[in-house]
Design a protein around this nucleic acid. Structure first.
Lengths: 345, 345
DNA sequence: TGTTAGCACTCAACTCATTAGAGTGCTAAC
DNA sequence: GTTAGCACTCTAATGAGTTGAGTGCTAACA
């Protein structure tokens, strides 16, 4: 068998097939390509080329007498080498972002929604993992005879509240002392930097109230941990009904469920964040996705960064024939926008 | 025309029709009823009765040669007069509830999920409106040179955080004074009870720092208001795919969207909460629902109360042929359970 | 007078065959 | 290497025929 190569013409045909399929969602025939492109080739010639492309695994036929559709490998080729990014009218998007919300979670919810409306795909945004974030401020206050409120503020003004049950009654002065103790020892530390040495030093200074120190440390750990099984915001799940290839009951139900449970989406976030090498944007086509229920979709994710150590993920989930150019362009804009937003604050 | 009456027999037939339809989801024929019941009537007799029932508007025919299905009026009759509550094995449900979560929102999320899994319908839980709730405790702390953190704790340990930007630099002593000022004036008050008199008195005492008092009041108002466009948790939206009559694309998409947006669900909450007369449980059948997109569903809602003024709503959304007995029983259990939970704390 | 048997009728749903049309592969000619 | 052309394949759409569940109505029965 002669070794086949992806020559210029094959690439052009491939491009034409994908472009057309992205638009219509229908298998593309040779005649269409013959007219659609400026190659001036007859459908017969295209057919020959398409037979080659099929043999090479870039396209496939749903059935004998249908046109061709891109295979996962074909999409991959497209994403890796053939895309021209559209930096289209994302201006409006920018503007909307600038109506900046104060609260982080509201902002992220809005981002998810904005993206969904803008792209007509399903979207998810993970709140930044607070992992390596530093403690900025701790405040204990008494709310009831035997209840303490612990407010924990982290770098980036992420705030955690926790109510502690305490056995002993504490007077105002003790609480004040504890506050000073906690803040002098812990401020500026990241969670990993709080070691046993620090803790025992604090306990010693706390004297009879050492139990409370333990409780507070636990509260901090818990507050941060609660954040670690990530908060994820989603939007536009029902957009999948726009794409007939995803809209049948079986698939739709699975996808909707994944979106509602959110649990499974964390895998996507993990996967995206773990890949340090990337340029910020990652494309999963079909089976490449870490989430089994989305094997008929493509997923494009981007990482955004709000100051050091605080990285979150934005994901767009759509059919394999999604408009990769637009999606990637939009994601780039959004992530830059988020970066800027942080810097301005 | 002779006036028709719902005699004993008609009621029995009606019951049989509904019971059967709830199970199968298919139109019910006369022959089925003839065998299904212990009435010992021929199908012909049943047919006559059914003709009457149809004329009275309790049942209807999807098409000439099909059996009958209950109309909204028919379901209403059933719910109002014919149901026998099942207080079945809800014990496990109780047990699961008792793994009580500390954080309110986690608890409510869990309730939504639990209900969804248990009933196989879609569910929603609204966080209790904090509206008439009383302030328990306010705490200002400095987190940065020109940033104050205001922590607002309400009755029931609902906590709001708010970061205030302040123009002037404040020393610790000033902040302490402000804290005392705020707490002495505001503790125990509900939002409506904070009137201009209170505020101006506080401002006067605050002297040059009166601007901050305004900011804090605003923060309180805002914090509470943010809570007023209600937090709603949903679960099991994909359960609608279990019921063919809701699973077609058009309907499914609309329902899923309503669940994702949540915005529209607030209407349901409003409606449920506004009805002071009710016994806690409300049933909306088909077009009775305040949410247009759910006109093909039935919605059963319950109000739960966590201390005075803190009332939330639990809703179960399913097909019109939902298992009303079970759903109502379950809702009763859950709401009582929530009540108990609060009392124990 | 209420109940029932029986029959003609209706209509959705299914099967089956046919057709139309889109698309292919292959061959022969350019 | 390219193309025209033709036989072939297969899906999707169409329509006729059949089935079966269910009805309404009538006449007979208790």
């Amino acid at each position: 068998m002669v070794e086949m190569q992806l020559d210029e013409r094959k690439i052009k045909i491939m491009q034409a097939i994908i472009r057309n399929y992205l638009e219509t969602g229908e298998p593309v025939g040779s005649r269409t390509i013959s007219k659609y492109t400026d190659l001036n080739l007859s459908s017969a010639t295209i057919r020959n080329e398409m037979a080659d492309l099929e043999e090479m695994g870039y396209i496939l036929q749903p059935h004998t007498s249908a046109g061709r559709i891109p295979s996962d490998k074909g999409y991959r080729l497209y994403v890796d080498t053939m895309m021209e990014e559209k930096d289209k009218e994302l201006e409006e998007l920018k503007e909307m972002m600038l109506e900046k919300e104060d609260k982080m979670d509201n902002l992220l919810k809005q981002v998810a929604k904005l993206l969904a409306v803008n792209t007509n795909y399903a979207t998810m945004v993970s709140a930044p993992a607070v992992h390596r974030n530093k403690l900025k401020f701790i405040q204990l206050s008494r709310v009831d005879v035997n209840q303490l409120l612990a407010v924990i503020v982290m770098e980036g003004n992420v705030i955690k509240n926790n109510i502690l049950q305490v056995a002993e009654e504490l007077n105002d002065e003790t609480i004040l002392k504890l506050n000073i103790l906690l803040n002098t020892h812990l401020n500026g530390l990241a969670l990993e930097e709080i070691n046993l040495g620090t803790i025992s030093a604090m306990k010693q200074q706390a004297g009879i109230h050492s139990a409370i120190v333990s409780d507070v440390i636990d509260a901090i750990a818990e507050g941060i941990k609660a954040d670690e099984d990530l908060e994820i915001y989603t939007s536009g799940a029902n957009n999948i009904f726009r794409y007939p290839e995803l809209a049948d009951q079986q698939k739709a139900s699975e996808i909707i469920n994944t979106f509602e449970e959110k649990q499974m989406l964390t895998e996507l976030v993990q996967d995206t964040l773990s890949d340090e090498s990337n340029t910020g944007i990652q494309v999963y086509i079909g089976n490449e996705t870490p989430i089994q229920t989305m094997k008929d979709c493509s997923v494009v994710t981007a990482t955004y960064e709000l100051g050091e150590g605080m990285r979150g993920t934005i994901g767009i989930i759509g059919p394999k024939r999604m408009d990769y150019d637009k999606v990637i362009g939009t994601l780039k804009t959004i992530t830059h926008q988020l970066d800027d937003l942080y810097k301005k604050k």
